[in-house]
């Protein structure tokens, strides 16, 4: 049985309920994919969430938490922040803990070169893709239930 049968949502479009659409958008930012789940599209949202978490945690694994740095990599951080609180927590850990380690320890934790570039890129691209996901939530929330599930 195709999974999209479980994706349909009863009732009309969320355009008639802007508060519900707003909640879905906020949820999409809080945790990538959660907006679709709130709309009743669990299979779609779950896959999006898995992809976003894969990219975010891969980026953190490759470059360390120094891959998220709102002070030294501000423009990259704007793209990364679209991923929501996960990235904000990573930045807080970096600013408040990692950057206050003893200098000799920071030789190990400071991301340099390719590791820092790739870690930053993974998380930033996840953020930009989540921006498209948020637009998709907005689009689907304006459609009737069956059409939004397609």
């Amino acid at each position: 049985m195709p999974e999209h049968h479980s994706e349909s949502r009863s009732g009309g479009g969320f355009a008639e309920r802007p508060a519900a659409a707003f909640i879905a958008v906020v949820c999409a930012w809080l945790l990538p994919g959660l907006g679709h789940i709130v709309l009743g599209q669990r299979a779609r949202g779950g896959r999006i969430m898995a992809g976003a978490l894969f990219l975010i945690f891969s980026g953190l694994l490759i470059g360390g938490v120094d891959s998220v740095d709102r002070v030294d990599d501000r423009l990259w951080f704007y793209a990364q922040a679209v991923n929501g609180p996960i990235v904000l927590v990573a930045d807080a850990v970096n600013q408040r803990y990692v950057k206050h380690l003893p200098p000799e320890r920071q030789l190990d934790t400071k991301g340099l070169g390719r590791a820092n570039e790739m870690g930053t890129l993974f998380i930033a691209l996840a953020g930009l893709m989540n921006l498209a996901v948020i637009f998709d939530v907005v689009s689907r929330s304006a459609m009737p239930g069956a059409e939004a599930a397609a």
Binding site: P2, E3, H4, P32, H36, A43, R44, G45, R47, I48, A50, G51, A52, F54, L55, S58, M118, L121, F122, L125, A126, M129, N130, A132, V133, D136, A149, A150
Partner: peptide, 17 residues
């Protein structure tokens, strides 16, 4: 990188999985 992006992108484009 492209695997993760594909995991996020394809659900938006597909009606059945």
């Amino acid at each position: 990188l492209s695997f993760g992006l594909g995991m996020m992108y394809k659900p938006m484009r597909m009606s059945r999985f």
